[in-house]
C-alpha cells in the first residue's frame, strides 16, 4: 500500500507541475502581456517600462522557474491589476468557491442517489428511462445555459431568488443547482449500475426471502454496498466542481475564486491567474490521489495492478 501511495504521489506532483507549465505558457502566448497591461494608447516607452518592471523581457523558462520557486517558498507575488499581494486575494475567495463546490456536490448526490436507486429498482421501465433522460439532459445542457434558464424562472418570472451576488444564502441556491446538476449524471449512472449488480446478489435474495420490507432491503442492504464507489468519485467530482466554477461564478457574480480567475484572465493578471490555476490543479490532484487511495483501500485488486 505504501509503495502504491508513493507511486501515485509522484504522478500527482508531475501532473500538477505539467498543468502549471501549460497554464504559464498559454497565458504568455495570448499576446504580449506588457501591451495588455499598459492599456490602450500606451506609448512604446510605457510598454518597455512595463516589460522591464515585470520581467517580461527575460526568456520564458527563466520566468517560469523563478515564479515556481517563489510560489513553492510561499511567495505568491503581487497582483498586477489590484496591486495587492496575490495570496490574501486568492485565499479570501477560496471560502466562497469551496462552499459552492461542497454545496453543489451535496446537491448532485441528493439528486443522483434517489434517481439512481429508482432507475435500478425499476430497471428498463419508463421510470428508468425518465431518470436516464434527466441525466442526459444534465450532461447535454451547457451549465451557463442552464444557469440562464434558472435565472429566467426563479429571478425574473417568480422573483424568488436574487439574480447575482454572494451576500446571502439565497445567492447560492441557483449557482449550486446549475453546477451540481452537471455533476449528477455521473453519480446516477454509477449508483444505477452498482444497485443493479447488488440487487442480483445472493444476500439480497436471502434478505428478501426472510420477508424483510422492500425499503429495508434496498436502502439498508443494497444501497450501502452500491454507494461505495461513489465516495471515490465524489472526491474527483469535487475537484471538477471547484475548477468548473469559473463560468458559474462569473454568471452569478459570485465573489469566489472562479470569478477572480475570470477577472485575472481579462486583465492579464499573471501572478493571480497562475496561482489560481496551480492551486486548483493541486486541489484536483490531491482529491484524485485521495480517491485513488480510497479505491485501493476498498479494493485490493487495484493495488496489485
Amino acid at each position: 500500500m505504501g509503495g502504491y501511495i508513493l507511486k501515485r504521489l509522484g504522478l500527482a506532483i508531475a501532473v500538477a507541475l505539467a498543468v502549471s507549465m501549460i497554464a504559464f505558457l498559454l497565458l504568455r502566448l495570448s499576446g504580449d502581456p506588457a501591451i495588455a497591461i499598459a492599456g490602450e494608447g500606451a506609448r512604446s516607452e510605457d510598454i518597455e517600462m512595463v516589460r522591464k518592471t515585470y520581467g517580461f523581457d527575460r526568456p520564458l523558462p527563466v520566468q517560469y522557474v523563478e515564479w515556481l520557486g517563489k510560489t513553492l517558498r510561499g511567495d505568491f507575488g503581487e497582483s498586477i491589476y489590484f496591486k495587492t499581494p496575490a495570496a490574501p486575494l486568492i485565499f479570501a475567495k477560496l471560502e466562497t468557491t469551496m462552499a459552492l463546490g461542497l454545496l453543489s456536490l451535496a446537491f448532485a448526490l441528493a439528486l443522483s442517489i434517489p434517481l439512481g436507486v429508482l432507475a435500478a429498482v425499476y430497471r428498463n421501465s419508463w421510470i428508468d428511462r425518465l431518470c436516464l433522460a434527466l441525466a442526459v439532459l444534465g450532461q447535454a445542457l451547457p451549465n451557463f445555459f442552464f444557469a440562464l434558464l434558472l435565472i429566467m424562472v426563479f429571478s425574473i418570472t417568480l422573483r424568488w431568488l436574487p439574480v447575482s451576488g454572494s451576500d446571502t444564502w439565497q445567492h447560492f441556491v441557483m449557482p449550486t443547482i446549475a453546477l451540481g446538476y452537471y455533476a449528477a449524471p455521473a453519480f446516477m449512472r454509477l449508483i444505477r449500475a452498482g444497485m443493479i449488480e447488488v440487487l442480483e446478489a445472493d444476500y439480497i435474495r436471502t434478505a428478501r426471502a426472510k420477508g424483510l420490507p422492500a425499503s429495508r432491503v434496498i436502502f439498508k442492504h443494497a444501497l450501502r454496498n452500491a454507494v461505495v464507489p461513489v465516495v471515490a468519485l465524489a472526491a474527483v467530482q469535487l475537484g471538477f466542481l471547484l475548477g468548473g466554477s469559473v463560468v458559474i461564478e462569473t454568471i452569478f457574480a459570485l465573489d469566489g475564486l472562479g470569478y477572480l480567475a475570470y477577472q485575472s484572465i481579462t486583465f492579464k493578471d499573471f501572478p493571480v491567474m497562475q496561482n489560481i490555476v496551480l492551486l486548483l490543479s493541486v486541489i484536483y490532484v490531491v482529491l484524485t490521489l485521495a480517491s485513488d487511495v480510497a479505491n485501493a483501500w476498498l479494493d485490493p485488486r487495484i493495488r496489485v495492478a
Binding site: 429571478s155 425574473i156 447575482s164 457574480a253 470569478y259
Partner: peptide
C-alpha cells in the same frame, strides 16, 4: 457583474 446577460437579468 462581468456577464452581460446577468446584468440584463438584474
Amino acid at each position: 457583474i462581468p456577464d452581460r446577460q446577468t446584468q440584463m437579468a438584474e
